[in-house]
């Protein structure tokens, strides 16, 4: 994970786009998501930077940023595990999956593992109802989960991070 909010290229790109379109404000989610994907989450400086690029006040950016549940305004682990707790997953064992995750990671919902790798968050339906129960780690969706499969996935995610 880069320690910059936006790379020089991204900055240029957004500045140019903001200048050429009629309603620069429409880019607010794009900029926030770019910051989040670089930095892991959106710190105050990220909100301010977004405002500066789009000619909005920090508050105007914050109004939008805090509306969404997938913009993180607090530090999170390197990988966020979104556990679907909506009805289809619930009907096929999401609660067990959730409990298993909490136990193996040693954290409660909203928490981050002490090594800073995983953050656990509940989410509403992931659109993986046919493969319930499902979780999304980062932007990858995993379905048809059992505790064993989940352990493997966590292993793989950890290993991928170490590379």
């Amino acid at each position: 994970m880069a320690e910059v909010l936006l790379t020089e290229d991204q900055l240029d790109h957004f500045r140019v786009r903001a200048a050429e379109i009629a309603h620069p404000r429409e880019l607010v989610i794009d900029v926030l998501r770019a910051i989040q994907s670089n930095f892991g989450w959106v710190p105050d400086e990220g909100v301010e930077l977004t405002g500066e690029i789009l000619r909005l006040s920090p508050l105007q950016v914050e109004e939008v940023a805090t509306f969404y549940d997938k913009i993180f305004r607090q530090p999170v682990g390197k990988r966020v595990i979104h556990v679907c707790d909506s009805v289809c997953c619930w009907s096929r064992g999401a609660e067990e999956i959730y409990a298993h995750l909490q136990k193996t990671l040693g954290i409660s919902p909203g928490g981050t593992t002490s090594d800073g790798v995983f953050t656990l968050l509940p989410t509403c339906c992931l659109g993986a109802c046919g493969e319930a129960p499902a979780v999304m780690i980062g932007l990858t969706t995993y379905g048809d989960l059992t505790p064993e499969r989940l352990d493997e996935i966590l292993e793989r995610e950890r290993a991928a991070l170490e590379e």
Binding site: D44, V47, L56, S57, P58, L59, Q60, E62, E63, T66, F67, Y68, D69
Partner: peptide, 19 residues
């Protein structure tokens, strides 16, 4: 004014400033 507004979502709505 642009420095005061509404933050958050659902039942967790907050009327205030960025800082």
């Amino acid at each position: 004014g642009t420095d005061f507004g509404v933050l958050g979502c659902n039942q967790r709505i907050y009327f205030g400033r960025f800082r």
